[in-house]
Design a protein around this nucleic acid. Structure first.
Length: 571
RNA sequence: GGGCCCGUGGGGUAGCGGAUUAUCCUUUCGGCCUUCGGAGCCGAACACCCGGGUUCGAAUCCCGGCGGGCCCA
């Protein structure tokens, strides 16, 4: 437990006993952080039960609390009971634990709980475009946060190699003559193949014969035709190679890839069907399709019918998804699905159906809104897209220009490598900084922001700290609070001490967008300290200040790592 | 037609029941450069979609509009 958590416990205890002393033991109260106090207890909530003005309550409670331990002062003000934390303890304890824990500072000990994070899972029919780029970045950041919260995390991509879209793609790849379409000018399989997908879609609309060919292929696929299934799988694998390359470029590596077709092949999807048919919620339409009626499961209006077989008895996407989730829960204690907002209803239905199947576990979902273009929605089929690969290229090349203009001393190789880290950092930071459910309109100049609230701003502060520590050429650690009394030093240390609770919020509450805000807070506090206080040139404070610089660097590294952003030592 | 999500300075964004000053970035204007890396620091300007209600207190909760996104038939 860090100093801040202990402080919170002490406040709990102090208020608890004070309430006892004024004759109202066990009353519930709220705590909040504010500018006026390290922790404040608003007494408005207590005023009804105590039949007194909040102001009086705060004053009476204060009389019964003697500052001790980490509590340095208690003050009633405007109906609030304000607690201040003992700064000297905060300073030394925070710095000591950062030095002792290093990369693990802010992390919690292992819980022994397995969490599966399913993310990305985009249809392998085209390159990843920025409309969906939130998915891997949110998923990966969440996975990293959960690891730091002490969970055993496995990340997983559910590959949709069943259904109309991949069949259309496969038909295109196998039947559209090579020379008849212009492949995109990028040497990656996903970019090469997408042209055939587009062409196949176009031909299908224009030519009923081709439409029939594709339908026939789909029928054979669903009848279990090994040749077709193999061909589709092969095409999807090729496409996926390209997607993986892109993911790897933005520091996203998934632990496991699971293929949808496997749940048809091993019979588990059929098994789900027969189990659902036996449930009391099951019914059949006139043409023979099976559904569950979910009106008892909080699903409103006309959406209560959840179809799980077609009239010919074949399974649907959602049926296979059920089999998949049952399989997932054999391997994990908890599951989180990162999904586009269009999946909201489907996800709710999935959860209800899992309940009906008697599953004791239900996945948690995290939704995000799509990123659109100023002119509207992106579409792979129509070619109205900005590819993630193009965004990466642009970000990296702008970062490269920036470095070249200010660091002529670096080798070409070093500049290229650093430019990658900065460009990727800018992209990941920009996407993760906004609340996932808020809709975003993609604008180049906003996506490529390098100043202020940006990834490069944090990276820059990290590099600056590294440079100072290098120049220092040796110093001893000093965590003596009397050596760090400047207001900027104190403010910075306070920020550093909050890291644990930020990680907790990002992981446990799945509020990953708080991470970049916190990183910015650290960087800004460091810049203020840097501008106000000399470090290398100071005398008796030198060791302590360098220790603070080192600790800031450690926390920044941890934040950036959690965001999946590299932290070059120079830039 | 029904359901879910979103609406905060010129642009973007945090806060989602609390304190006289609503966060941060960008922009505009003004200041800091003989200082450890100026991708920086300091200051100023500018905002809670509209109308009701609940509450000691509403950007935050409820109801009704309006605008945008998504889903279902």
């Amino acid at each position: 437990m860090d100093a801040r958590q202990r402080f919170e416990k002490e406040v709990d205890a102090a208020v608890g006993t004070a309430l006892e002393k004024i004759g109202s033991p066990g009353l519930k109260f709220i705590k909040e952080v504010s500018d006026m106090a390290d922790l404040a207890v608003p007494c408005f909530t207590l005023s009804k039960e105590l039949r007194a003005a909040p102001k009086e309550i705060a004053e009476r409670l204060a009389e019964h609390i003697v500052p001790s331990g980490l509590i340095s002062s208690v003050n009633p003000l405007n109906g609030y009971l304000n607690f201040m934390m003992d700064e000297t303890v905060l300073v030394s304890e925070t710095l000591k634990s950062i030095l002792a824990e290093g990369d693990a500072y802010g992390s919690m000990p292992g819980k022994g709980i397995r969490v599966n994070v399913e993310h990305t899972s985009t249809n392998p029919t085209g390159p990843i475009h920025v409309g969906r780029a939130r998915n891997p970045i949110i998923g990966d950041t969440l996975a990293r946060s959960l690891k730091r919260c002490g969970y055993d995390v496995q990340t997983e991509y559910y590959v949709n190699d069943v259904g109309k879209q991949v069949v259309i793609l496969t038909w295109g790849v196998n039947n559209v003559p090579k020379g008849s379409v212009t492949e995109e000018d990028r040497d990656k399989t996903d970019h090469k193949l997408v042209a055939y997908y587009r062409e196949a879609n176009k031909l299908m609309e224009e030519d009923d014969g081709i439409k029939e060919q594709i339908s026939e292929m789909l029928r054979r696929f669903e009848d279990g035709d090994k040749e077709i299934i193999g061909s589709v799988r092969k095409t999807a694998e090729a496409m996926l190679d390209g997607l993986r390359e892109t993911l790897s470029d933005i520091n996203v590596e998934l632990d496991k890839y699971t293929w949808e077709s496997d749940f048809i092949a091993d019979g588990s999807a059929k098994d789900v069907v027969s189990r659902l048919k036996g449930s009391k919620y099951a019914g059949q339409t006139e043409d023979g399709a099976w559904y569950l009626d979910l009106k008892d499961f909080g699903i409103q209006g006309k959406n209560t019918k959840f179809t799980f077989t077609r009239s010919d008895g074949t399974t649907l996407y959602t049926t296979r998804d059920l089999a998949y989730h049952l399989d997932k829960f054999k391997r994990s204690d908890k599951a989180v699905d990162v999904l586009g907002e269009d999946q909201k209803l489907g996800s709710k239905q999935l959860c209800s159906a899992l309940e009906i199947l008697g599953s004791d576990k239900i996945p948690e979902a995290m939704f995000y809104s799509f990123v659109s273009l100023p002119e509207g929605k992106m579409s792979t089929r129509k070619g109205v897209v900005v590819y993630l690969d193009d965004l990466i290229d642009e970000a990296v090349s702008r970062a490269y220009e920036e470095i070249r203009s200010r660091r002529s001393d670096l080798s070409e190789e070093a500049m290229r490598s650093i430019a990658r880290k900065i460009g990727i950092g800018a992209i990941r930071y920009n996407i993760i900084r906004v609340h996932p459910e808020k809709q975003l309109i993609f604008k180049w100049n906003e996506a490529l922001n390098f100043d202020g609230n940006s990834g490069p701003y944090l990276q820059y502060v990290h590099a600056r700290a590294c440079s100072m520590l290098k120049k220092a050429e040796g110093y001893d650690h000093d965590t003596d609070p009397s050596m760090l009394t400047d207001e900027y030093e104190r403010a910075l240390i306070k920020v550093l001490s909050k890291f644990g609770s930020v990680i907790r919020e990002a992981g446990e509450e799945k509020r990953v967008h708080t991470l970049p805000a916190y990183g910015h807070e650290v960087a800004a506090a460091f810049n203020q300290f840097y501008a106000a206080v000399p470090v290398l040139a100071s005398d008796e404070n030198r060791n302590a200040r360098l220790t603070l610089v080192e600790c800031t660097r450690t926390v920044l590294r941890n934040v950036l790592d959690c965001l999946g952003i590299d932290y070059p030592e120079e830039m």
